[in-house]
C-alpha cells in the first residue's frame, strides 16, 4: 500500500488504494472464474472525471509561475489519461468477452495507473504549495541576514515592520502544514522549530535594541552585544533552515534514507 504524506492526499486516495489492492488479490485468486459485469457506465464516469482533472490540471499549469510544477505536472496528466484509455479498452473488450484475461489485466493496470498518476499529480501540486511556504521562509532568512547591520532605532523599526508580517505568515503556514502531515516525527520537528522561533524573536529584537543603545552611548560593550545579537540571529536562521529541510521531506524520502 502506498504511503501518503499529507492527510488531504491520504483522505482522497487511501480508499481507492485499498479497493485496487482488493481487486488485484481477487483477480489473482479467481482468474478466469466468473464473467465480469458490464463496466461501461462506471468506466464512463472515470473517463469524465479524468477529462475534468486534465482540464483543471492544464489551467493550474497555465496559471502557475512555478517552473517545477509546469515541468512535472503534464507528465502526471498524460499518465492519468493513458490509464483512463486502458480502462476504456478493458470495458470494450469485456463487453465482447466477459471472461477476457487481457481485459482484466487492463482493468487492473488502468485502475492502478489512475491511482499512481493521481497520486503523482497531487504530490506535484502539494510540492508546489510547499515551495510557496519555503519562499516565505527565505524572506525571513533575508531579513535575519541584515540584523547585524541595523545601527539605529529608526532602522530597527523598519526592520520590525519588514520582518513581523513575514514571520507571522511563516508561523501560520508552517503551523497549518504541520497539522497536514501524516508523518508524526516531521510534524513534531516543525512544532518544535516554531516554538523556538517564537521564543527567540523577541529576544533577538531585545538584543538589537541593547546593541543600538550601547553604540549610541559611546560603544563600551558593543562587541559583546553584537556577538549576542548575531548568535540569536544565527539560532533563528538555523531553526528556519530546519523548517525548510523538513518541509521538503516526504515519508518516502525517510524510508529511502533508512
Amino acid at each position: 500500500m502506498p504511503v501518503f504524506h499529507t492527510k488531504t492526499i491520504e483522505s482522497i486516495l487511501d480508499p481507492v488504494a485499498q479497493q485496487v489492492s482488493k481487486l488485484v488479490i481477487l483477480h489473482e485468486e479467481a482468474e478466469d472464474g466468473l464473467p465480469m459485469p458490464d463496466l461501461q457506465q462506471p468506466v464512463r464516469s472515470v473517463s469524465n472525471a479524468v477529462l475534468n482533472l486534465v482540464k483543471v490540471g492544464r489551467e493550474t499549469i497555465n496559471s502557475s509561475d512555478d517552473q517545477i510544477l509546469k515541468q512535472d505536472m503534464p507528465g502526471a496528466l498524460v499518465r492519468v489519461e493513458r490509464s483512463s484509455k486502458l480502462l476504456e479498452e478493458a470495458s470494450r473488450m469485456l463487453k465482447d468477452d466477459p471472461y477476457s484475461s487481457p481485459a482484466r489485466k487492463r482493468l487492473i493496470d488502468g485502475s492502478g495507473g489512475i491511482l499512481q498518476a493521481t497520486s503523482a499529480l497531487l504530490l506535484c501540486f502539494d510540492e508546489s504549495e510547499v515551495r510557496k511556504i519555503i519562499r516565505e521562509c527565505h524572506r525571513v532568512l533575508d531579513y535575519l541576514a541584515v540584523a547585524e547591520v541595523i545601527e539605529t532605532l529608526d532602522e530597527l523599526v523598519q526592520f520590525l515592520r519588514d520582518l513581523s508580517p513575514c514571520l507571522s505568515r511563516v508561523s501560520r503556514e508552517v503551523s497549518a502544514r504541520e497539522k497536514e502531515l501524516t508523518h508524526q516525527v516531521h510534524a513534531e520537528i516543525l512544532v518544535r522549530c516554531l516554538e523556538q522561533i517564537k521564543t527567540l524573536a523577541p529576544i533577538l529584537i531585545c538584543s538589537m535594541k541593547i546593541y543600538i543603545h550601547i553604540v549610541s552611548q559611546g560603544g563600551k560593550g558593543a562587541e559583546e552585544a553584537a556577538e549576542n545579537r548575531n548568535y540569536l540571529a544565527m539560532r533563528m536562521t538555523d531553526e528556519i533552515n530546519e523548517i525548510i529541510r523538513v518541509l521538503q521531506l516526504t515519508s518516502y524520502d525517510e524510508e529511502t534514507s533508512e
Binding site: 482522497i12 479497493q19 482488493k22 481487486l23 481477487l26 466468473l34 464516469s45 492519468v80
Partner: peptide, 29 residues
C-alpha cells in the same frame, strides 16, 4: 482547490468501478 476536488471525483469514480469489478470475483471466492 479545484485540483483537489477533481482528484476526489476521480478517486470516487475509480473506487466505484473497482467495487463493481470486484463484486463478481468476490462471489467466486
Amino acid at each position: 482547490e479545484m485540483i483537489l476536488e477533481a482528484a476526489k471525483s476521480i478517486a470516487a469514480a475509480t473506487s466505484a468501478l473497482v467495487k463493481a469489478a470486484s463484486a463478481a470475483q468476490r462471489e467466486l471466492i
